[in-house]
Amino acid sequence: MGSELNFCIMISAVLFVAGVVCMATKRNAIGVLMGVELVLNAANLNFVAFANYTSLGLDGQVIALFVIVLAAAEAAVALAIALNFYNNHLTIDVDRADDLRG
C-alpha cells in the first residue's frame, strides 16, 4: 500500500503546487481560475487514492463527487464575475482590478 499511495500523493502534490503557482503568477483572470481547478483536482486525486488504498472506502469517492460539483459551480460564478469585469474595464488583467483600493 505504501509506495503506490505515496506515488499518488506525489502526483497530487505536483498538481497542487502547479495550481498555487498558477494562481500567484498569472495576470489573466482566466489563468487564475485554471489554477484553482488544478488545486481542486489535486485534492480530488488524494481523496480517491486514499479511498482505494486505505480503509476509507467509498467515503473518499463520495467526497470527490461533491468536490467536482462544487468546482463546476465555482467556475460558473467566477466566469460570470470575470465577464462582468471585462465588460466594465475592457481587460481581464487582474492587476487592473484596483477599484476598491483606498
Binding site: A29, I30, L33, M34, E37, N41, I68, V69, A71, A72, A75, A76, L79, A82, L83, Y86, L90, T91, I92
Partner: peptide
C-alpha cells in the same frame, strides 16, 4: 463534468474576454 463542462465553460470565457 470537468473536461466536458467546466473546461468548455473556461474556453468560452477565454474567447469572450480576449481582445
Amino acid at each position: 463534468v470537468y473536461v466536458g463542462g467546466t473546461l468548455v465553460l473556461l474556453i468560452f470565457g477565454v474567447m469572450l474576454t480576449a481582445s
